[in-house]
Design a protein around this nucleic acid. Sequence first.
DNA 1: TTTAATTCGATCAAAAATAATCATAAAAAA
DNA 2: TTTTTTATGATTATTTTTGATCGAATTAAA
Lengths: 250, 250
Amino acid sequence: MTFQKRAYKILELLEKFGEVEIRQLAAEINVSEVTVRRDLTAMAANGLLYRTHGGAMKISEVIKPVSFVNKAGVNIKAKDAICKRAAADIIDGDVIFIDCGSTAFRLCQFIKNKKIKVITNSLPVVNELLDSAVTINLIGGEVDATRQAVHGTTAYEHIARYRASKAFLGVDGITVEGLYAGSEHEASNTLAMALQSDCVYILCDARKVGKTSYLKFNDLSLVNILVTDYNNPDVTEFETKGISVLSVTV
Amino acid sequence: MTFQKRAYKILELLEKFGEVEIRQLAAEINVSEVTVRRDLTAMAANGLLYRTHGGAMKISEVIKPVSFVNKAGVNIKAKDAICKRAAADIIDGDVIFIDCGSTAFRLCQFIKNKKIKVITNSLPVVNELLDSAVTINLIGGEVDATRQAVHGTTAYEHIARYRASKAFLGVDGITVEGLYAGSEHEASNTLAMALQSDCVYILCDARKVGKTSYLKFNDLSLVNILVTDYNNPDVTEFETKGISVLSVTV
DNA sequence: TTTAATTCGATCAAAAATAATCATAAAAAA
DNA sequence: TTTTTTATGATTATTTTTGATCGAATTAAA
């Protein structure tokens, strides 16, 4: 019985009971207590479990895992429907930008098993995709705590170094006149990502279509595809401006 | 029977059983154990299987290496004592590097109320300092999921753009001969941060002092201050090399 | 607090597995 | 063909793994 196999067994028992005693393990695996003790020490050093006097505990019950949480829970159904449709366009081998909005965040759940590269400035996105098939490239720069995202000059320069096949971006408002953002930061970031992408998707639920906001940062020429649940004849206005509209129903 | 044929057979058996013993393989393929051993070594080097003592395992069966959160569970008392001492040296206005090791992570709790800038490649550090007085600059680049940190060429270039007054770094081992790391990534990162800092602190609990590891990546000239709980006359050896040793008791 | 019982870490020894060395056989190159 | 290189197996030295033992440290009980 090799160390690797014992480690497996130990983790299995740990998962089952939450905690285990050395005597119990020694009997179960059929090795001496000294060996079990050595195994536990090694595994604790590798962070696979938490060592206690006389045994071990599951790590999750001792230390809280790292987690960035995306709080924005508004209009989730619509956002999920939009993102599901958008995800259908993502194929293996794609390199995509995902911005730090609450809409684009919902995209994560649909792309976990795709073999793609994701470039993002959003900490919740990184956290969500950490244990997935996706390769993550995180934009560097100053961290904005309220948005849980990276912004600033360094960040935009970082974005400019990469080239993606698709960008999935949210906006604060979109009309035939152009794109609106809620802050300079958001605008700069959206713009930087869009400029480095072959195909720009705007993910935008119905509330924001036809609405303006604080800052108009670009006209519609930046956009290739608009994914929305806004089912209204007006969408033809966008199409005449050269934008493909993907309508979804909630 | 050529190597290629044997390799195929070995992978086949591995797929079937998940693990194999050398004796078993030698009998099955009808070659000596020495040859099997050589085959396994070669195949392991190419990442086709995981070598164990006495045999081999399927890669997927092997327990994932160091997950970062967990490693924080080892020797916490010593690490906290070390970090508390180190934090006493940090003053308002400082710009500091914090690396992605489990020791340096413990520093966060002591600096939350300081008016400083922290530059880091560690996601847990970012998470821990998100709601604090600290301004965070996150290194950008490829995300290493197991370490929950950012690494790669882009990351090291990002580091080179900044200049800090102090760097707080962990190592896998330190002797009078030099500094040791557990991987190329860790070494590159530590080195990059150290080179951009006016004063380099090595945070190192007693277990790692006097110990060597996988990779020696630099001599001691890189280091200015060693903070450790290693209370032994031998520390004078480091001091003769020009390093200030800050000893703490647990 | 003191005492007794565990548990731990260090050291040692035996067994197994590995790495290193060498000689031979097979294959490739000259 | 001869020479050189490569692959294999045998042999020996080294390393790793495991279990036993004992003093020190830790926990639980009195």
